[in-house]
Each structure stands twice: as C-alpha cells, then as structure tokens.
Design a binder for these strands. Structure first.
Lengths: 189, 189
DNA sequence: GTCTATATTTTGATAGAC
DNA sequence: GTCTATCAAAATATAGAC
C-alpha cells in the first residue's frame, strides 16, 4: 500500500469538493480550508486549479479507454462484452466516486486537455456502439435502435457515482449482476 | 402564441448558457453579451442571477410533479404507467432542452428554493419507486431490484436533454417508443 | 430599456519569511 | 511545507443619466 503524497491528497480532496459543487464553484480557498491549510500553500504542490481538474479527468478517461481495449480484444460474445463493460463501469465508479462526477459534469472546463478528452470519449462511444451493432447483426440482440441502447446503458453507467454511495449494502458484484439483468434482459415478464 | 417578454428571453438565453458551462461558470457579462446588451441592463428585468436559476429549475420540477400526479391518478397498468412516465420525460426534455441541464446539474446552487426542490424530487422518486414495486407485487414485472430499475430508468430519462439535440430526425413519439422497448423489454433475444 | 460609472467582494495566483 | 501579505483580474450588483 503506497503512501499517499500531499499532492495526491489535494487532488483527492478537490475531487470530493468538485462533486458537491462543481469545478467552477469550488475556490482554492475552499480547497485549502478542506485541507486545513491556507490557499497559498496549495501552490507548493500543484501548479493551478486547472491542473487538478486535468489530473482527475484524464486519469479516469484513460482507465476507461484501457478497459474498452481489453473487452474488444477478447473473444467474448456480444452480450458478454456488454456485461464486461457494465463491470468496468461499476469497478471504476466504485473506486473513484468523486472523480466520476468531474468526468461527467466538468469536462467542458478542461482547457489544454479538452480535445484529448473528447477524442478518448468519442472513441469509447464508437467502440461501444460497434459492439451493439455486431450483436444485432449476429442476431444476439433484438433489432433495436443501437444508438438508443448505447445512450441508455451509458447514461445509466455514467451516473453510477451518484447512486453507489446511497447503496453501500450492495457489493460491486451484486450491483453489476443486477444492472446486467435490468439493462440487458428488461424488466417485464 | 404569446409574445415572449424580455425577462423570459433573458431566462431562455441564460438556460442555454447554463447548459454549456454550468451556472457557476456563466457570468452576468456572458449573459449580457449573449443578449446583446450590457450587464447592468439585465437588472432592469431580473433581480439576481440566483433568481434566474430558481425560475428555470422550479418551473420544470413542478411540471414533473404535475405529470406524475396525472399518472398516479390514472387506472393504467403498471407497465402503461411506466410508459406514461417515459413519455412525460420525452415531452418535457424536448420542450426544454436547456432547462433540463440546469435541473440536473445546477440544483445544488439553489439557495432559498433548495429545500423545496429537494422535496419535489424526493416525492417524485418515491412515487416512481412505488409504481415499480406495485408492478413486481402484481407479477407484471420480473422480480428485479426496484431501486436499480428506477435508478436506471431515471438516469436515462434525466439525460435525454443531452441526446435529443443530436438526434433531430427522431420525433418524440418514435423516441418514446424506442425507449420503452429498450427500458422495459430489454435488448436480448 | 439601455447606458456609463462605480462600489464591494471574491477570485487565482505570486513573493518572500520562517 | 506553511505562513502573511499582496496583486491583478473578474465577479455581482447599484445609482443615476438618457
């Protein structure tokens, strides 16, 4: 278990504040107070507020990109690939509740890294859609609108960070299984 | 067709800017520029930035509350009630793309109206959950986790404002039908 | 209904002492 | 690694002329 550096601690606390009020509404004084120090002291560890946001968002976005690559390279059926994607989201969201909020809500406040983030997101969605389309072609999935399926699954998965903290009694495995049932098999008899 | 007042125009333009950058990141100067006037002139029509947010969010939240009441008072089956809720979200989101963004992302910046908003939202979710639970009891729905079903449906529906503008070729009816299929009947064969 | 001018507060960030 | 002191810019909002 690696010891958390002061810089990492600042980023972790910042992500928590960003989740509660959003990047723009959190001031460096808010962050300093939460750390128990003065605002000026933050700059001994980080370069700027913007740098904190970059670190939070890009690290998670790259984690998703890596996870999607593993799913694609696998020889799984389409439905099993979708289940792997559900598990990927449950895992990342569980481990990074606060960061997921910034990824979802504050990506537009990225500056130098905005285009890089958008390219990662665009590719992720392209790959996701392609899995669904293959499932329809191979008759593994119903002939549904693939974009609506992706939209529905992805918004649910991207919002897990809101919901996981309210349901601490569900472990990651149970949550992923329940989500698979609901998202893939539907809810009617 | 009632003529739009200057105040309504300001609120409409503000909602559009709030959607793009969030409430906190939009300045009164941004809003004034978008209106083609100076910031000070805004205050001839509105009391404060906060008042704009109140108006945007509370009006939509009350619209949802009203719609849910109609669904509850109906004698429809559980699945038909869920379909009515889907249609309600599609309708409100279609008519108020920008306002839905504030409702979803900037409710925490409400001040005097925060508790009122939270009570409306809490009651809405309570009613939604109750419909799902009744469907399970009456065997109209599978024995799924009702909270996961509500979470999945509600996050998808609440995010429609992101997605509708990208799919202008789908009218509200087609979208609602497609969503019903995906959300209720699932996607696998 | 819009303007200029301005008051007041808050913001991100830096310099330099300890 | 933290502090005090401070800067320069930007924020919401008001007053009063036109």
């Amino acid at each position: 278990m690696k010891q958390e550096t002061r810089k990492e601690e600042i980023i972790r606390v910042a992500a928590k504040l960003f989740k509660e009020k959003g990047y723009s509404a959190v001031t460096m004084r808010d962050l300093a107070t939460a750390m128990g120090i003065k605002a000026a002291s933050l700059y001994n560890h980080i370069n700027s507020k913007q740098d904190i946001l970059n670190t939070i968002i890009i690290s998670i976005a790259e984690e998703f990109t890596q996870g999607m690559k593993l799913v694609q390279d696998s020889k799984l059926s389409c439905i099993d690939k979708l289940k792997q994607i559900v598990a990927l989201h449950v895992k990342i969201a569980s481990e990074n509740i606060y960061g997921m909020a910034s990824l979802n809500n504050d990506w537009m406040h990225l500056e130098t890294q905005l285009n890089y983030y958008l390219s990662l997101r665009g590719n992720y969605e392209k790959d996701f859609l392609s899995i669904i389309q293959q499932g329809i072609e191979s008759s593994e999935l119903k002939n549904v609108n693939p974009e609506i399926v992706m939209f529905s699954m992805l918004t649910t998965l991207r919002s897990l960070y809101i919901w996981i903290p309210k349901k601490e009694e569900l472990n990651a495995n149970d949550l992923a299984n329940n989500l698979n049932n609901v998202l893939i098999h539907g809810i009617n008899i």
